[in-house]
Design a binder for these strands. Structure first.
Lengths: 189, 189
DNA sequence: CCTACCGATCGGTAGG
DNA sequence: CCTACCGATCGGTAGG
């Protein structure tokens, strides 16, 4: 029964925002989750909106770190694409609360902050576009591949993982990455 | 300035739930959208939760009708898959509010109703699994295709369309369907 | 569909 | 981190 740190508060906020949504979570709910009163949270943070900002920034940061690492992979564009997929799945499964909040609750942010989230997402998506373009040049992929559209398709699959995948299921994490990479590479045909 | 029907109320609720979320929408917000007071809504509906149920049921119904029609398509499994994709995109773009609410706000439903939504989604997904299995048999697709997983991947792409696609953009609706079908069939390679 | 209202809950503050 | 509290807003009701 030691005191909560600000990190504890942000982590708990992430859990509740992910589960019930930003508007579905009250400061009193969050206090209860931490074993204190809603009003006591204000010694850790300025307000509810700031908590959302911090959770969302954590989510964005995880993804960007992952992309930077994946782009540094030596090898073919296909290798870098697989690294991007592997990294993304790792982030989604290891930081579910922050990721869910980042993906689903950004609309609850004040307009300027929401705009910065959209910019961060675009920066991340750019890593996928880059790799697809490289692959069209180095022969990893079809030369006529539409990078912007295909980047969106790949990210659609990756982001949705959080909505259905359970680690206790019939496929493990590595298989999931392999299945996605295979689908993205060759489709169903 | 004629009176609102219950359909108007449900439609407006769908718009606000889609835009601000269920918990982010108050009965007074909804009243304002319709030009009346929040309390006046209770002559049309029992409560806020009922509105969510009706919006979500509309969304579910659109998708199921679309799947039933697509499965009746004569031709190869690939033809039926394309019909499923085409139908899905049509529903997403023609009924955005209901679809967004159906896809994103089902967690705000009471437990039994949420369970019935999950069941409806599974029934719909079954159409995709069926077509993939048929395609593995009739030679449309690879014979070793994992239908459950690939159905999820395809639906991930389809459901995400609502998050990024604007009809005013550089690709029109038919191109979008074609791009998705091509990606799903052959991937980026 | 409005008037007038209910008890409950909201985000947040002052002061310790 | 708690006590004690604020004004605003919430979903909803009674009666017309």
């Amino acid at each position: 029964m030691t005191r909560n740190t600000k990190d504890d508060v942000v982590a708990a906020a992430g859990r509740l925002f992910a589960e019930r949504g930003y508007h579905g979570t009250s400061m009193r709910d969050l206090g209860k989750e931490l074993g204190l009163l809603g009003s006591s949270l204000y010694s850790h943070v300025d307000g509810k909106q700031q908590l959302l900002v911090e959770v969302v920034n954590r989510g964005a940061g995880f993804f960007q770190e992952s992309a930077d690492a994946a782009l540094a992979t030596v090898g073919s564009a296909a290798d870098r694409l697989e690294a991007l997929i592997d990294g993304h799945i790792g982030i989604v499964l290891d930081h579910r609360s922050e990721v869910r909040t980042y993906l689903n609750e950004a609309d609850a942010l004040d307009p300027e902050l929401r705009a910065s989230v959209i910019a961060a997402r675009d920066r991340y998506e750019e890593a996928f576009r880059t790799v697809l373009k490289e692959g069209a040049a180095d022969g990893s992929f079809r030369s006529d591949v539409d990078a912007p559209i295909n980047a969106i398709f790949i990210l659609s699959i990756l982001n949705a993982v959080d909505r259905w995948y359970r680690e206790q299921g019939r496929i493990d994490r590595d298989q999931l990455v392999g299945d996605i990479f295979e689908f993205v590479s060759d489709g169903v045909s």
